Computed example of a mutant assay.
Amino acid sequence: MNMRLSSIDILRALTMFLMIWVNDFWTLKDVPKWLQHAKVSEDYLGFSDVIFPLFLFIVGLSIPFAIKNRLKKGDSQKSIVGHVIVRSLSLLLIGVYMVNYETAYNDGIIIGKSFWTILMAVAVFLIWTDWKKSPIPQKLYVPLKSLGFLVLVFLAFIYQGGESGQYWMRTQWWGILGLIGWAYLANALAFLFARGSLIAVIVLWVVFNSLSVLGQTEMAPELNGVLRYFSTIVGGTVPAFTTAGMVASLVFIKWSNNNIGLTYFILAVIGIICIAYGLGTRQFWGISKLRGTPSWLAICSGMGFLLFTLLHFIADKKKRTTWAKFIAPAGTATLTCYLLPYIIYPLHELVNFRLPEILNTGALGLLGSLVFAYLVVLLTGWLEKTGIKLKL
Rank of each mutant, 00 (worst) to 15 (best):
L267F: 09
N106G: 12
G161N: 07
L126A: 15
T322Q: 14
N23E: 04
A186P: 00
G278R: 03
S210T: 15
E357S: 13
A363L: 14
A220I: 02
E357K: 12
K325V: 09
L359Q: 08
W128S: 09
L378S: 10
I287Y: 02
G161E: 04
G302N: 11
M16G: 12
I10L: 10
Q77R: 13
K68I: 11
L185D: 11
N106S: 15
R4I: 06
Y105G: 04
R170Y: 07
Q77A: 12
V269S: 05
K385M: 03
A328E: 15
L250M: 14
L147S: 05
F193W: 15
A276H: 01
L119K: 07
V86M: 13
S295A: 14
G181T: 02
L91Q: 01
S295M: 02
A333W: 06
W116A: 12
W205S: 12
G278A: 06
K289E: 03
V234Q: 08
G292T: 00
L11E: 01
K317D: 14
L262T: 05
S256T: 06
L250K: 09
D30I: 00
S212W: 02
T386A: 14
L310R: 02
L177K: 03
E102N: 04
N106F: 10
Y345T: 08
V201C: 06
D9G: 04
R282P: 00
A13Y: 05
L45R: 02
G112L: 13
N259M: 07
R291H: 03
I343K: 10
I260E: 12
I358K: 11
M219H: 13
T237P: 00
Y229M: 03
A324K: 05
R70F: 06
D30C: 06
S164F: 11
G235Q: 09
A183D: 02
L56C: 00
L177G: 02
K78V: 12
F65G: 04
L11H: 05
S164Q: 14
S249F: 06
T103P: 00
G286N: 02
L335Q: 09
L189V: 10
V234T: 07
F353E: 14
V251S: 04
V122I: 15
G112N: 12
R354Q: 14
M19A: 03
V84D: 07
T103W: 04
F208C: 10
I63M: 04
L370Q: 10
L61M: 05
S256M: 08
S7A: 14
L14K: 10
G46C: 01
K78G: 12
K68L: 15
L339Q: 08
K391L: 07
L192A: 11
L204A: 08
Y264L: 10
L378V: 15
S134Y: 07
F52Y: 07
L14E: 11
L375H: 09
Y105T: 08
G236T: 06
F149Y: 10
L223W: 11
F252C: 03
G302Y: 13
L198M: 12
I85N: 09
L28H: 08
A315C: 15
K385F: 01
I20G: 04
A298M: 14
K39E: 15
L370Y: 13
W174I: 01
N209H: 10
A123Y: 13
V226S: 09
N69E: 12
L91T: 02
S76L: 03
N69G: 14
W255G: 01
L310P: 00
V31S: 07
G178P: 01
V269T: 10
L147D: 03
G178E: 05
G196D: 09
I202R: 06
N360G: 04
A328F: 08
G74H: 04
